[in-house]
Nucleic acid binder design. Structure first.
Length: 843
RNA sequence: GGCCCCGUGGCGGAAUUGGUAGACGCAACGGACUUAAAAUCCGUAGUUCCGAAAGGAACGUGCCCGUUCGAGUCGGGCCGGGGCCA
């Protein structure tokens, strides 16, 4: 019998599926719908192994649900705008458009070689004008709905590259490309009003019961709801200062008040105080990332103004401008209680301000309790706080709020979530469809003039944003007055592109952003699969977008993704030579458990397994694996052993063993001679292989439905072992087993299973064959093995019919030799019998 | 610092959710087939101790304590690793 030739078989079936349009999804179907989606890739150039893992999982699910009788939508597209294309353009002198589309062509080919059951008729790239024109329309609709606004905002400014940087592009205060110190700069920017949905985005998390708890928690923390009190200080210069605090209970521990450097009052004071102006400028030198501000040394500037304590007209607090107070949070002004807030404490220590504890832990002595280097933020009772003394923290908060409400204070809810700044000073993105007119101000582009297309050629030999430097593109007429005007030269954050692509897939060719019928039918996505790195931003933005699109009349949907699965990364051992240079796996050869450089035989240090990355060279190219073993082998590897949410380690041995298993299945299933023809009933035959078959069907079905691919794989191994262990099973039983095997592996190893299906005498396609059904009568066990314990220690087992009565089980247990030995000189005090499980004799 | 997750053979991992710990796979070892190798097939295998052997005993899921007839699973405390927010 010939070995299975994966290469020939795989390309043959890929062509056949394509010609027969097996995976094209009809717009309408009487079947129930199932929308499975993997996070679409950025077209970086080649598929990497993380993509393989992600798309294999999605494809298994798509094929499984299709076989179960669902109408499955399983599309693919390209998250095609973004910085790498600009870098390639700058470095290689190609156009970002050509570079991107060439990458897409390569990667599409690679995905097809994986045998993914994708409806390619729905494919699009976000850099297609046919996609982003609709995004521009959505932007204008959101503008009309009041969900888009323009505002001054602090940005991280790279003075060398003359560009705005995202927080992630700033490391240790330096720009990631230029290495220059980043400055804070104010620019007029476009915002999406995600905070209009803070409460809804938070509350709706509870309903996402098919999301990982971890992701829901991360989103919850990100939205960051906190309840607090807004009240007013009267200042010595006669002004009022609004304060927000989550700890009104600590008001008697206050030792200062502090303003943000960006507070309007600060700006006003700075006009008359050059030293303060200099201090503010100094604060702005740090980037905008909160973590960075947090890490920076706490600095303050004493304004010489004082604030009157709301409960004591004779008690005044110094008012500082402090670098750690954020204008974006609360009112941009705080009162500082050093004893119970770490930042306030650091500030107070530096400026020698009093630190008075007012909350005493229950187990501490109020007279001796002092604060050292750490603020006390735990529970306790109030002290040193006049009328609050003795109250618990929560009661004290209430009491303060109650008393201050008469002075105009209000209990308020504050969120950490900020509005979404979507302006990017980048040329390879979706142009913002707005025009700036000297007479009319900011004017939306007319819908009939959409799309605002990117220029055909983008010049990269300029400082700053090439769109800004392109007069032909930039200058236009005002849609309002027809006079001279300029386009907004910013483009949208690429997270906007990925916030609604899953909607577009429901009808990628519609002349409007959303075909309402298709969207209503297919959405929400039933199962979304992708990396945990998108747990916060992408998923939160998509959730917001669906709400905004609903408001604009496009959708009736509440949540975009009913089910979410976050898969783990693919890792590999790392290698270094004697000089500490990283080495690639294909440069290494292993002998007797040690590693050597292939070329020279020099010893190699084997390091820990880490996420595959170019910098550590521990990458394995999927196309190489597919070339050697075929797609089914790499797919099987991605599903085996490691639970899908955990990091998986790629090993050559593992790949070999998957390849061997492909061949084993081929051997087992291609021996069809002597079997009765397809369709021969096995019902009525009694054989242990029949029971094994139906147990396997039941188990694999359950594991696949729960996305526990590694356990499904283990069940299939066990099933194949059962088949080879019973070579003389009756023909009909054997046929039933082999057909079940082919059907069960078909979502995971689609090409092999088509070939095996054919070898078993069937017409193509197994990909269109229905999922096997387990016969419940064959799942019932014939005998159960019952553990027998003496004092909780295992002493033996007994075989019994399921549901055997307690008395006979006890008798059988006591009859066991090891039990007799263990019971010597003792008498049973109690016997616990758990039906079908265990007999435990307590002596 | 707070919150959350994880810790099981040489390795990846199972364990019906409190009931026989180590399924399945990798690596290893023994055997069959072969001139030989590869491939394949059959078998062994948690650790330690006793025994010539058949077999038997003790220990065993990061550590300590607890609840229970019974704990990988539940509770408390610690150690180690990771994540998110500070």
């Amino acid at each position: 019998m010939a070995r299975y030739n994966a290469k020939q078989s795989e390309s043959r079936w890929q062509v056949a599926w394509d010609e027969a349009q097996v995976f094209a999804t009809p717009a309408h179907s009487a079947k129930p719908k199932y929308y499975v989606l993997e996070m679409f890739p950025y077209p970086s150039g080649r598929i990497h192994i993380g993509h393989v893992r992600n798309y294999t999982m999605g494809d298994v699910l798509a094929r499984f649900r299709r076989a179960q009788g669902y109408s499955v939508l399983h599309p693919m597209g390209w998250d095609a705008f973004g910085l790498p294309a600009e870098n390639a353009a700058r470095e290689k002198g190609v156009s970002p458009r050509d570079w991107t589309y060439a990458n897409i062509a390569t990667m599409r080919d690679q995905l097809k070689q994986m045998g993914l059951s994708i409806d390619w008729t729905r494919e699009f790239a976000t850099c297609d004008a046919g996609y982003y024109r609709h995004q521009q329309k959505l932007f204008l609709d959101f503008y009309r709905e009041g969900l888009v606004y323009r505002s001054e905002a602090d940005v991280n400014w790279d003075p060398v590259d003359q560009t705005v940087l995202a927080n992630e592009q700033v490391t240790d205060g330096l720009g990631w490309r230029s290495g220059a110190p980043v400055e804070r700069k104010k620019l007029s920017q476009w915002f999406l009003k995600i905070t209009a949905y803070s409460q809804d985005l938070l509350a709706a998390l509870d309903g996402l019961d098919r999301w990982p708890e971890k992701v829901r928690l991360m989103q919850k923390n990100w939205i960051g709801r906190s309840e607090g009190l807004r009240f007013t200080f009267t200042l010595s210069n006669g002004e009022k200062l609004d304060i927000f605090t989550t700890r009104p209970d600590t008001l008697f521990g206050a030792s200062f008040a502090a303003l943000s450097p960006d507070h309007p009052l600060t700006e006003e004071l700075a006009k008359k105080d050059p030293k303060l102006a200099a201090f503010v400028a100094e604060c702005r030198r740090v980037g905008t990332a909160e973590a960075e501000i947090e890490k920076a040394e706490k600095l303050g500037y004493d304004t010489a103004i004082t604030a009157t304590h709301p409960f004591d007209p004779d008690w005044t607090l110094p008012v500082y401008v402090a670098n750690f107070v954020l204008m974006g949070y609360g009112t941009g002004a705080i009162f500082g209680c050093p004893a119970h807030d770490q930042r306030d404490l650091e500030f107070a220590r530096k400026y020698k301000l009093p630190v008075l504890p007012v909350v005493i832990p229950d187990d501490a002595d109020p007279t001796s309790f002092t604060i050292g280097d750490e603020a006390y933020v735990g529970p306790g009772r109030l002290a040193n706080s006049r009328f609050l003394d003795g109250l618990e923290v929560e009661a004290a908060k209430d009491e303060v709020a109650k008393r201050l409400e008469s002075q105009g204070a209000a209990r308020t809810v504050q969120y950490r979530l900020r509005d979404w700044l979507v302006s990017r000073q980048r040329p390879w993105g979706c142009p913002i469809p707005m025009v700036h007119c000297a007479h009319c101000g900011v004017v939306p582009v007319k819908e009939s003039d959409l799309p605002v297309k990117l220029p055909e050629t983008i010049a990269f030999n300029v400082k700053g944003n090439p769109l800004e430097a392109d007069p032909a593109w930039k200058h236009t007429q005002c849609p309002n007055c027809g006079g001279e005007a300029v386009r907004d030269t910013d483009t949208l954050d690429t997270f906007v592109d990925s916030s609604w692509y899953f909607v577009r897939f429901t009808d990628s060719h519609a002349g409007v952003p959303v075909n309402r019928d298709a969207a209503d039918y297919w959405l929400p996505v039933d199962q979304y699969i992708g990396g945990i790195e998108h747990a916060i931003l992408h998923l939160l933005y998509a959730r917001f977008f669906v709400r905004a699109m609903k408001k604009a009349g496009y959708l009736k949907l509440d949540e975009p993704f009913a089910g979410l699965f976050t898969q783990g990364m693919v890792c590999h051992e790392t290698y270094k030579d004697a000089e500490g240079n990283w080495l690639a796996p294909d440069q290494i050869e292993k002998r007797d458990g040690s590693a050597f450089l292939k070329q020279t035989g020099a010893p190699v240090t084997v390091g820990p397994s880490e996420k595959m990355s170019k910098s550590k060279k521990n990458v394995v190219a999927p196309e190489t694996i597919i070339d050697i073993f075929g797609a089914d082998t790499i797919r099987w590897f991605m599903l085996s052993d490691t639970p899908p949410e955990r990091d998986i380690e790629w090993t050559d041995e593992g790949a070999d063993s998957c390849w061997k298993f492909v061949q084993r299945i081929w051997r087992v299933t291609s021996e069809a001679e002597g079997l009765p023809p397809p369709g021969t009933p096995a019902a009525g035959e009694v054989h242990e292989l029949r029971r094994a078959t139906h147990r396997a069907i039941a188990a694999v079905t359950e594991e696949l439905a729960g996305l526990r691919f590694n356990r499904a794989v283990a069940q299939i191994y066990a099933f194949v072992n059962a088949i080879t262990a019973t070579p003389d099973a009756p023909g009909a039983v054997r046929r039933e087993a082999l057909e079940a095997l082919v059907l069960l592996i078909s979502p995971m190893m689609p090409h092999l299973s088509e070939s095996a299906w054919e070898a078993l005498g069937h017409q193509p396609f197994v990909a269109a064959a229905p999922w096997p059904q387990a016969d419940p009568s064959l799942l019932a066990v014939q005998t159960v093995t019952i553990a027998v314990q003496v004092n909780g220690k295992l002493r033996g087992t007994i075989e019994a019919a399921p549901g055997a009565d307690e008395e006979s089980l006890k008798n059988a247990a006591f009859a066991l030799d090891p039990v007799k030995r263990a019971m010597e000189g003792k008498s049973p005090r109690k016997v616990i019998v758990v039906p079908n499980r265990i007999v435990n004799i307590v002596a």
